[in-house]
Design a protein around this nucleic acid. Structure first.
Lengths: 113, 113
DNA sequence: GTACAGCTTAGAGCGCGCTCTAATGCAACT
DNA sequence: AGTTGCATTAGAGCGCGCTCTAAGCTGTAC
């Protein structure tokens, strides 16, 4: 449901980003819908290249309740602008690569001609 | 000039992405302008998250001369489309984060009110 | 003369984010 | 009763891309 392996879910729990997962009679984990949504959000953060310790920090704030909403927003905004810069950089570099590709295409045509 | 540390330049040389750097009388490396341009290109590839072994493969092709131009272009095009997809994903995820930020803003306003 | 800065090398070490192992236990199927 | 399959845990291991160490050599400044 989240695309993460069981191993990775255990790991996320171990580092403290995933707390309060309930257990069934046999002691097996029973993930709630809320757990799944939370992990899905963690996956988004991970895909934005946010380091585990930042995700952990965010989790801790979330556990502390609504009083931390402002700080959480600041964190998200900081990463938002970081990712925007990264995308700009990727775009610039893609442009340079595109130039090289065009150059190679010309070379290939000359060889054919 | 490239933003890389001396250690990293040695490392790139060791893994075979940077060959034929000439030496002066004392056996010290003397990087040519061509060397610098090449390293700057490697830095672009690295910033596009191209793995070292791919960069090494590209270097090997380059060493083999103009006959490998076509294959080099294919490699660049493959990474180009991969990066484009990655940027799309980043953009999607930024949208989700933006939604959360707006939600937090509303929560903060309600607390104030 | 000697201290210092900066180069050389092979190889060790590190931080990250998983990923896997090994030993054990429980539940269901044959 | 035995086999299979999936869960549990603590902790080890891995691949990546550096990053640093240690020991030694050379040229320059004082």
């Amino acid at each position: 449901m989240t695309g993460l392996s069981a191993h990775t879910l255990r790991y996320y729990e171990k580092v403290g980003m995933l707390e309060g997962v309930s257990r069934n009679e046999q002691g097996y984990r029973a993930y709630s819908e809320a757990d799944v949504s939370w992990v899905q959000f963690l996956v988004i953060l991970r895909e934005l290249d946010i380091p585990i310790r930042e995700m952990k920090r965010y989790s801790d704030l979330r556990s502390q309740g609504p009083s931390t909403v402002h700080e959480r927003r600041l964190m998200l905004e900081a990463h938002q602008s970081r990712v925007q810069q990264q995308m700009q950089k990727l775009s610039d570099n893609l442009g340079k690569i595109e130039g090289k590709i065009q150059y190679y295409k010309e070379m290939e045509e000359e060889v054919e001609a």
